[in-house]
Design a protein around this nucleic acid. Sequence first.
DNA 1: TCAAAAGTGTTGCATCTACACCCATGG
DNA 2: CCATGGGTGTAGATGCAACACTTTTGA
Lengths: 230, 230
Amino acid sequence: MDVSVDCVVFGYDGEVLKVLLIEQKTQDGGALREKHLQMALPGDLIQSEETLNDCAARVMLELTSIENIFLKQFHSFGDPNRVREDKDQEWLKTYREFPNKRVITIAYYALVSLYDYTPSPSSFAGKTQWMKLEEVPELAFDHNHILDFALQTLKEQLEPHHIGFKLLPKKFTLSQLQHLHELVLDKKLDKRNFRKNVKRMEHVVPLDEKQKGVLHKPAQLFAFNPEALN
Amino acid sequence: MDVSVDCVVFGYDGEVLKVLLIEQKTQDGGALREKHLQMALPGDLIQSEETLNDCAARVMLELTSIENIFLKQFHSFGDPNRVREDKDQEWLKTYREFPNKRVITIAYYALVSLYDYTPSPSSFAGKTQWMKLEEVPELAFDHNHILDFALQTLKEQLEPHHIGFKLLPKKFTLSQLQHLHELVLDKKLDKRNFRKNVKRMEHVVPLDEKQKGVLHKPAQLFAFNPEALN
DNA sequence: TCAAAAGTGTTGCATCTACACCCATGG
DNA sequence: CCATGGGTGTAGATGCAACACTTTTGA
């Protein structure tokens, strides 16, 4: 029985929520024939002496060259057949010694800001791409299911765990923060009420700085102060 | 690499919260020498073609003979050394072909009412016992850590997920429900406010029946109606 | 001067908290 | 009749939802 870690990496660019997907490639770098070219969540088998968290961090580092990314384990998936559908077997055959071997996966979600730069792929995967959530196609294995679960978890944890900031640049405006929350929670929020709430959070601190280069009234910038959490 | 499921089984008897622990026994039924006699959470290696949920249910069935128990996955633990402390090696040597083999465990918590009867052990484990939470000794592996994590999870999920009823008899009084909540949340609750809240939950329905055989005013009985959830 | 987003308060309503006494039953 | 827990209401404070107009900037 093998055990892997899969990462659902959410990115936000100020417009929409995206997920980082990789294109499955064969071990020798060649492509599978077209109908079996699939996208998947980034992940890897756990190495023999690394912790689960280390494994998730390694996957992220190899894939995006980002260190210290926010990563959180949220669920494990272990249906004995999750890896055995026809659509997945061809790729596994080129990749694994025992393509039919059961794989249990421990899933993490990660949050990345895409404002400043777009984390780039690496040699590890074929191609990586940030895909808008609504445009995610059918993925390998049970990865659509894992993605749904991750999104649900993000919805539940966004506010209580104060993790929205991980998706924003270090300096952000309240409108950006609000827009992000509207996206994740999938509902409109009232501007004035939203700002009232944020302003009584001690871990959101106003900066002596304003937005520049926008064609409207520049907004006050804020930053997240992790010290002030509880 | 092996994968197991461990279950943190919480039981409530009207007085205190308890956990179900098993005494490690050797494969041939003999006892380890005393200093290595340890208690552990019930669990087992996942069999080759069962799902995670099925495995958890099997562990519970073998252990307590209860079917349809409430079981929920809450976290996976995979430190490479979680199984390699001296205190654990002796038992593993009698039990496993490769006692040093890494084991990743997927943890579930379960909720059981101990009002009506006390679920009994089985041949699978050595001895089982319900132990008060405050009296739990040092356990095998990282099981104390897993237990802490489970308790924390229970605290967070008790109210929003309406699972307190799983720890109570089918017919219960509001005082019983309140006492349970006070135990789990570890704080006193106001009786009148508590009752106001419960009475606007549609899934808690009053019965045409009262407590019997108590030496005070008999309380109204209530039942949980799962139909009325959402 | 126009467009575009920033920024700002109040009011009514619902919810939460704090708090103390009488009731029904069995012994 | 006593001991034991069961059962009940209110007032004040707090939090939440709904709502529209003025300000600042760059083009």
